[in-house]
Design a binder for these strands. Structure first.
Lengths: 356, 356
DNA sequence: GGGTTCCGTGGAATCGATTACACGGAGGAT
DNA sequence: ATCCTCCGTGTAATCGATTCCACGGAACCC
């Protein structure tokens, strides 16, 4: 493959001049520039990014570590991260930690060896050693979705508390009083925050969240099924099951169907994380939608800011409630599922965004 | 960050010796080795992969270009590719072509600039210029899932024809005679092959595949919906809709529901590509499952073989039919759907699962 | 007209590793 | 004892770019 020397020779200039042309350095004569460009074109020359990286000490590569690639939420996040990064001239190496701190550390190490310019992480746990080291050692790092308290790193995430309040209001308005939640791992921020928000929202309606209505899940479908089965076996089963992520909601759906119960007739179901599939289930699932695309973009922008030495602030974007049919139908159809449906209902709570 | 020179200094040896220790070169004294190792440990030294790549002309990085990351099939493929690659000491840079040849070329160019060791591609079309150039120029390349006829590159894919025959047998046994297919883009091999296999299988039962029973989709959900609506508007609508990929099946599901029809009572549905979600829909969807994990692993192994100069052969793995309930319940269930579920029901439709 | 400034350019150092080659010393063969 | 062969090690070249510095010549200023 042709190198910069070949181009220099072909154009009758030095390698320095070729480099200057390629990097749009001002002091190059028009004549030299055109000869270089012609040579580049003729030889089909493409600069070697590896050599460039060695010299400039930047790879224009970002590392993205997510906890579960098979989860549609993270897939979408990864997609938007890659898109935004590409727009900014960065490539992305994705590492799938599979909810394992060990694997996560493995990925951090590899990425650091490859001298990525920055690290985007949705941490699996409270702080694996490599990750903490990297962050403290000054590797540009940004947390996305989940974060680790006490680590001074910008966080890009969605705040679901308002949406959870809207959800509880919606459920309460439908007459539901016994609400249960399938929680995520307590070691993750998203795991605990969602339970807290739910409990707080219930409190505003004078409702309790008893211990037996808090099931411990692990963000995987199977745990949703298990927890839901336990709920249904209770002497007084809940009227609503709220799953703290989409996969657990799926498990819940299965468990409910396996019991021969109908949704929302016999029991209502709602989920945190909205995904395209929830439109296609029967019934469509009411969910709290995170602005996933925007999260990905904001995360990349924050990270590149840190990389370029600008100080980046944390970003918190609001999640919003998307009412479908899995919790029951109010007097006037509230849904927002399929494409263009006029949402304005004459009844109270025209758009679920306020808090009581 | 500490470099190899620092290690050499700390251990009182030359950089050559340090390098030899790190690369397990035989001729290093036990004494020197231990001193180097100690120094490495103390300084927390990690070799700079960029410098190493420049010198050795290999990056131990693979490029993976897929046509749609949001499609669960490709997500799973990407996951298994990354896993196998990691096991072999490679990192993976994923590019999402989004079914656009232009974007695909863009990714090829970037990856080549980064001097990846090999390219794994599921081509979006019949041959975008950059991709063809790369393959012909000798960049180690392997096609996965889809391929480009006439290009001499190993192909790792699943053969669905036997499974399609099984499916048609299954449908025929259930009494269905009017079978329609939602096809993928003709420019992709998977798009045309599946239609061909379907037509051939029908032929074996003396059935035709009339023109109006072949809908043109694009592997996206919306096209599945559109095509299915057209099918249902036909004077004589099909009894079965077979979608050539999972997303289009989803669209079909929607269209059928929107018409108020029941599956499989009013119309049957089957899909190519099995995904976890098909277990959770109502009813669970009969599908043709590709050995996705194995495809990913085989693709990586083939690619690394080419990289290391060994000659790699193409691999074709069989897909298999997974019978669920979206086509009707046969007298004796042939299927192999969920783990260990005694599916044999004496009476039809034992559990309340239909919708009014 | 002479000195200063600026511009375009090339030579060479540099990034951090790997590795060919040379070299000194130990051990074996004769 | 002499020579040859290895073995362990260090010196320096190398990979392909970027960039500091120096230099020659043109333009500009009094």
């Amino acid at each position: 493959m042709a190198g910069i020397k070949d181009v220099a020779a072909a154009a009758g200039v030095s390698v320095a001049t070729v480099s200057r042309v390629l990097n749009a350095h001002p002091s190059v004569s028009e004549d030299a520039r055109s000869r270089v460009l012609a040579a580049v074109d003729e030889l089909g020359y493409r600069p070697n990014a590896v050599a460039r990286s060695l010299r400039t000490a930047q790879t224009r590569t970002l590392g993205l570590i997510i906890s579960d690639v098979m989860n549609p939420y993270f897939t979408e996040l990864a997609r938007s991260v890659e898109e935004e990064a590409r727009a900014l001239g960065y490539s992305v190496i994705i590492g799938n930690a599979d909810e394992s701190p060990k694997l996560q550390d493995d990925h951090v190490r590899t990425l650091l060896d490859r001298r990525i310019d920055g690290l985007l992480v949705s941490p699996t746990d409270g702080g694996s050693p490599q990750l903490l080291d990297a962050a403290r050692a000054g590797t540009p790092t940004v947390f996305v979705d989940r974060w680790i308290p006490g680590v001074d790193v910008p966080v890009v995430r969605a705040d679901g508390s308002a949406a959870v309040r809207d959800l509880v209001a919606h459920l309460h308005g439908l007459g539901h009083r016994r609400l249960a939640i399938i929680a995520g791992p307590a070691a993750t921020t998203t795991g605990s925050e969602r339970v807290d928000a739910f409990r707080a929202a219930l409190g505003a309606y004078g409702l309790e969240l008893p211990e037996e209505y808090v099931g411990q899940g692990d963000f995987q479908a199977e745990s949703g099924r298990r927890v839901t089965e336990a709920f249904l076996a209770l002497p007084e089963p809940p009227e609503v099951v709220f799953a703290a992520d989409n996969l657990m909601a799926l498990g819940a759906l299965d468990a409910i169907r396996a019991r021969g119960l109908r949704i929302p007739g016999d029991i209502a179901l709602a989920a945190f994380d909205d995904i395209p599939w929830f439109v296609h289930t029967d019934p469509p699932v009411t969910a709290i939608a995170q602005p996933t695309r925007e999260l990905g973009r904001a995360a990349v922008r924050a990270l590149t800011a840190v990389i370029e030495g600008r100080r980046a602030r944390s970003v918190t974007l609001p999640a919003r409630l998307v009412v479908r049919r899995s919790c029951g139908e109010p007097g006037a159809p509230p849904g927002t599922a399929p494409p263009a449906r006029p949402d304005q209902s004459p009844t109270p709570r025209p758009r679920p965004r306020s808090n009581p």
